[in-house]
């Protein structure tokens, strides 16, 4: 019982990490029809820069971690917005080229990160409490999971608030549903594109810093490997659906944890099977719209 509880809680923790990456991906795809292969690079760069700043503020302290998280948010948002403005916007309405450009950027930046920070993962220090565990009904849950769950919950809340209560949020929600009609109402939807990239980048940036806490290291490939799971989460949840991304993140991570423990380390395969099953039974994903516009 306590093992199952532990697996469930750690699953939700990992799901929180997936959500931080997948939320932006899903919003970007929903609004713009672009599958952003550079998203992992936003995460990796934020992870590295967050670590660089954090260790100078105070290696392994809460102050350092908070500074790192802040840097991660800002770096993620900035890099993503610049990517949209410089590379994506020029290819307005050319979705295949937009995807190809993000593929190129993803490959190129990972190589650049390797050049700067090396190919081997760098061990990082974290506040002592995060390395400990908390007893929940007999299950010793690693404390960093609470940080992940808390951060993802806050991000989810903030994104929902933004979408519900701001003018840009209104444009984005409408654009996810029918982008063409938004422009036909005289609204420059491209500005919403930049905003969505920035939001997604910020979430991914925070995810990058938290991923380094979760794995205890930063590496040039961290973003790429998380990106694949985030893609899977996004498709299972339904492209463009934030709620779908949240549900699918947890679902995928829990399946992965359970399969890893009970079925001899087959978590990755279980996730792929889940994806195949969802796509065959319900191609638009759990909470996706009937047809993308």
């Amino acid at each position: 019982m306590s093992t199952l509880l532990l697996l469930l809680i750690t699953g939700v923790g990992l799901g929180a990490l997936y959500f931080l990456v997948a939320s932006g991906l899903s919003l970007i795809y929903g609004l713009m029809g672009v599958l952003n292969f550079a998203h992992g690079s936003f995460l990796t760069l934020a992870g590295f820069l967050g670590w660089e700043v954090g260790r100078r503020v105070g290696d392994g302290t809460w102050g350092g971690l908070l500074a790192g998280m802040l840097v991660g948010l800002v770096v993620g948002a900035l890099v993503a917005a610049v990517t949209e403005l410089v590379f994506i916007r020029r290819l307005y309405q050319r979705h295949i080229e937009q995807v190809l450009v993000t593929v190129g950027l993803g490959l190129a930046t990972v190589a650049l990160f390797e050049g700067i920070w090396g190919t081997d993962p760098i061990r990082i220090a974290k506040p002592a409490w995060l390395g400990g565990t908390t007893d929940v009904l007999g299950a010793s849950v690693p404390n960093d999971r609470w940080l992940l769950i808390g951060a993802a919950a806050v991000v989810l809340g903030l994104i929902v608030l933004f979408l519900r209560a701001t003018p840009y949020g209104l444009v984005i929600r409408a654009g996810v549903e029918n982008r063409t009609m938004v422009t036909a109402l005289g609204i420059d939807v491209r500005r919403a594109f930049t905003v969505v990239f920035a939001i997604g980048g910020a979430a991914a940036g925070l995810g990058g810093v938290l991923a380094s806490v979760y794995y205890g290291q930063v590496s040039a490939h961290q973003g790429t490997s998380l990106l694949i799971y985030a893609f899977i989460v996004t498709v299972i949840g339904g492209l463009g659906s934030l709620a779908g991304a949240a549900v699918a993140s947890v679902l995928v991570a829990v399946i992965q944890q359970l399969a890893n423990f009970y079925l001899g380390g087959t978590g990755d395969l279980a996730v792929v099977l889940a994806l195949a099953a969802v796509l065959l039974v319900r191609p638009r994903g759990l909470l996706g719209k009937a047809a993308a516009r």
Partner: peptide, 23 residues
Amino acid sequence: RIPLSEPLFLLGMLFVLVVMFAP
């Protein structure tokens, strides 16, 4: 030195330029 010593970085950026300017 760092960008120039990463072939994949240069090839990736070349690819981006081709997609943008010479599809």
